[in-house]
């Protein structure tokens, strides 16, 4: 039985290596073939809904912050994580409506960097926070990013469609990252404290580092 298990593991590791090799090769090919990216223009070609949905994906800060929030929620488990599906989209819409009415420049890049550091530290330290605290953090983050994303809407943009796209993107992003984190941790099959937990906490430390660098840039400029 043990022999069979070790053989299965070695076959799986060869398969994983082969898969990683293929993914690496495909990445190199895609990067070599890549042309100038027109992210904002592509979004506008598909109308205001897709402009709203694609706008946060063109900003590194949104990507890093939402990933950090998803990692945090996923590391806390499904009972915590599922609340973000309900909290994040309304928070984004609230922030967007405030940003559209009073402008989006008052949210300093330093605030986003500070949020990255806070979320990164929470993930890296593996701190367990309760659902209410997680929802408050998510709401603050969503509000901030909603305000910032309001800068992507022009005077002629249909605000309802732009907002719907933004909320839909936030919902899909957070649901997928949180679910992927939960699936990666495999809490149902393995006890906590495995290499999978360590890998998630390592991601938290990288996010903290990115936040510190972003904060440094914000202070320098």
């Amino acid at each position: 039985m043990r022999q069979f298990a070790s053989r299965y593991e070695s076959v799986r590791s060869v398969a994983v290596k082969r898969l990683l090799g293929r993914v690496g090769f495909a990445t190199v090919v895609l990067l070599a073939a890549a042309q100038t990216a027109d992210a904002h223009i592509v979004a506008s070609r598909l109308g205001d809904f897709y402009a709203g949905a694609l706008h946060p994906l063109t900003d590194l800060q949104d990507g890093v912050l939402w990933t950090a929030l998803g990692l945090l929620a996923g590391s806390l488990g499904a009972t915590h994580g599922r609340w973000l599906v309900l909290v994040l989209p309304p928070g984004l819409l609230l922030g967007l409506s405030v940003g559209l009415s009073v402008g989006s420049t008052w949210i300093a890049p330093l605030a986003s960097a500070a949020m990255m550091v806070v979320l990164g530290l929470l993930v890296a330290l593996g701190l367990r926070i309760n659902v209410a605290a997680l929802c408050v953090i998510a709401l603050v983050l969503a509000f901030m990013r909603g305000v910032v994303n309001a800068g992507g809407a022009g005077a002629a943009t249909d605000r309802v469609l732009f907002g719907a796209g933004l909320a839909m993107c936030g919902y899909a992003f957070i649901a997928l990252i949180t679910a992927l984190t939960i699936a990666f941790r495999r809490l149902d099959a393995q006890p906590s404290g495995t290499w999978r937990d360590i890998a998630i906490r390592a991601c938290g430390s990288w996010i903290t580092a990115i936040g510190l660098i972003a904060g440094g840039f914000a202070l320098a400029s």
Binding site: A78, T79, G81, R82, V85, A172, A175, L176, T178, A179, L180, I182, A183
Partner: peptide
């Protein structure tokens, strides 16, 4: 694929 991924995510989150 996006819809299937979201359905999977909802099952994982028990949402």
């Amino acid at each position: 694929l996006l819809i299937l991924a979201l359905m999977w995510a909802h099952r994982r989150l028990n949402a």
